[in-house]
């Protein structure tokens, strides 16, 4: 039987996995909301204090939530042998890796972005700034998912690699986090949004290749 184009297969599979077993999509959402909810209890509930750090808290929560389900993204494919098939296909593996990561971002990253306005309002952030900020959260989240995807691919053959993935990916988040946080403070007109887009493009141009090299390693 000839499998469908691996790109489409990878994409569809990532979408499907999100709703199968264990409520995959809800996990990062719950983590994201829960982490943000904890903050007022730890730093105090004064509105002025919260509003000044609210956007930054959303960035931290987004960075952490993007790693929550990263462990299973490639590990599941490795275990059921799909990865081996993909590695032998004519379609370059880096495209498959990119499709997989972007599909994963669509199902577990985009909902987090849609959630930033309500959580931001709860954290006393100026409501008018939150909708334009969604663009920054979306771009930043994509970069987080790409680097997280590299880490996930590297740790695909490691049992219980979740913490390892965090250790590998978090240092790579620094530029995106910096420019993302600046962009949400400046608003959409500032230069930081451009720098943020640059870090996302940078991730987009490197992460698929690194992830595919790591996936070949996991298959061998």
């Amino acid at each position: 039987m000839r499998s469908p184009s691996p790109l489409r297969a990878a994409f569809r599979q990532a979408l499907g996995e999100a709703w199968a077993g264990g409520a995959g999509v809800l996990l990062p959402i719950g983590f994201f909301a829960g982490a943000a909810m904890l903050v007022p209890f730890t730093v105090g509930s004064e509105a002025s204090q919260l509003s000044s750090i609210g956007t930054g808290i959303l960035w931290v929560a987004l960075a952490l939530a993007s790693l929550v389900s990263m462990e299973r993204v490639f590990q599941a494919d490795l275990e059921d042998g799909v990865l081996e098939l993909w590695a032998q296909e004519e379609t370059p593996l880096f495209l498959v890796a990119a499709a997989k990561i972007i599909a994963h971002w669509l199902v577990s990253g985009l909902p987090l972005v849609l959630l930033t306005p309500p959580i931001g309002i709860a954290l006393q952030v100026d409501a008018g700034a939150l909708v334009p900020a969604m663009l920054a959260y979306g771009l930043g989240g994509l970069a987080f998912f790409l680097w997280g995807g590299v880490a996930g691919a590297l740790a695909a053959s490691v049992a219980r690699g979740g913490l390892l993935i965090s250790l590998l990916a978090l240092p790579l988040f620094v530029p995106t986090a910096i420019f993302g946080a600046l962009a949400t403070i400046e608003g959409p007109g500032g230069p930081s949004l451009l720098f943020l887009s640059a870090t996302t493009l940078f991730a987009l141009s490197i992460a698929p290749f690194a992830a595919s090299a790591a996936l070949r390693l996991a298959v061998d």
Binding site: V150, P171, L172, V174, P175, F179, T199, I206, A207
Partner: peptide, 12 residues
């Protein structure tokens, strides 16, 4: 991957 990121990290 880390090495190509280090200049970007430094810059940011």
């Amino acid at each position: 991957v880390g090495a190509v990121n280090v200049p970007l990290i430094k810059f940011s």
